[in-house]
Design a protein around this nucleic acid. Structure first.
Ligand code: FES
Ligand code: FES
Lengths: 144, 144
DNA sequence: TTTATTTCGGATATTTTTATCCTATTTATT
DNA sequence: AATAAATAGGATAAAAATATCCGAAATAAA
């Protein structure tokens, strides 16, 4: 469904958000440990999230990654997915035609469209904040 | 969503089914042309479909690939997807946890589960026959 | 100003997916 | 029996995704 990079990006964002609630910055090392991902690769993904203004980075001693508290409710999953995987997951054709086109549909178009639209709706309406809160309260988990 | 191999496999199966209705066998060359895919790679995927008893192959002169007419209604998309991509697309965790587990859900579990279940239902209930008929009647297309 | 810490970013390595090529094998026809 | 036409399948090759490494740049503290 999502690339590994995107999976790591989502989980990392959630972990950073949780810590930012408490005013703490986190390092790629802590993040990778907490989400069970390869550290250097995770660091690369963080760079992409910084470039897309989803995550903020602070260089130097006492630095690390953080997310503006006031932004976690506005940051939706689709911002992260778009930053890393692009929009093909919910705009592209399910069978790989050059584009998904109502007027020239592939064999699965009708059946896929509704599912893809639901996925799109979900990604556009799920905030980092709610995901982070569920982790904090032990309702969901980032690894294992 | 699906791998390229799976996309080619689905489209190839549809094209073979259409020709089988008319008692014609088709070659990897014809298939690749019709679904706009790399020929040798498509041939490899056909081998997998043959091994999974979805497609029948006949070697030698006047041979080619065919699908038993009486089976096209019973062959569902999920048979093809399972044969090529496995079942991770609708059984695996959306964020890459080792397994999707209600008792130990990832942050997106609840929101994903319903979408994935719908995808699963669709794949299990869409037959090769209906997809082939829609192509035949010009309602949908295999390429461009 | 020096030092320690930390992200940035380029280079490289590994693995997986996608794709190609060539020979062996099978089979219908002549 | 010989020939031509097909698929089967192993060996590579190329491209993309995943992963690692290391020096440069920035920053806070001593
Ligand atoms: S054309 Fe294939 S999903 Fe719309
Ligand atoms: S645990 Fe992740 S989707 Fe179910």
């Amino acid at each position: 469904m999502f690339s590994k990079a995107c999976e790591y990006g989502i989980k990392a964002s959630i972990f950073i958000a949780i810590n930012s609630f408490e005013g703490k910055r986190v390092s790629p090392k802590e993040i990778a440990k907490e989400i069970d991902s390869p550290q250097a690769f995770t660091a690369k993904i963080l760079q992409a999230l910084v470039k897309h203004n989803i995550v903020n980075s602070v260089k130097g001693a006492y630095g690390g990654f953080e997310i503006d508290k006031d932004k976690t409710a506005a940051i939706k999953l689709h911002h992260i997915v778009n930053a890393i995987d692009g929009d093909s997951i919910y705009n592209g054709c399910g069978l790989g035609l050059h584009e998904c086109n109502e007027a020239h549909p592939c064999p699965v178009h009708d059946k896929f469209k509704s599912i893809r639209d639901e996925l799109k709706f979900m990604l556009e309406n799920t905030s980092l904040q709610e995901l982070a809160l569920n982790i904090k309260s032990g309702i969901s988990f980032l690894k294992v």
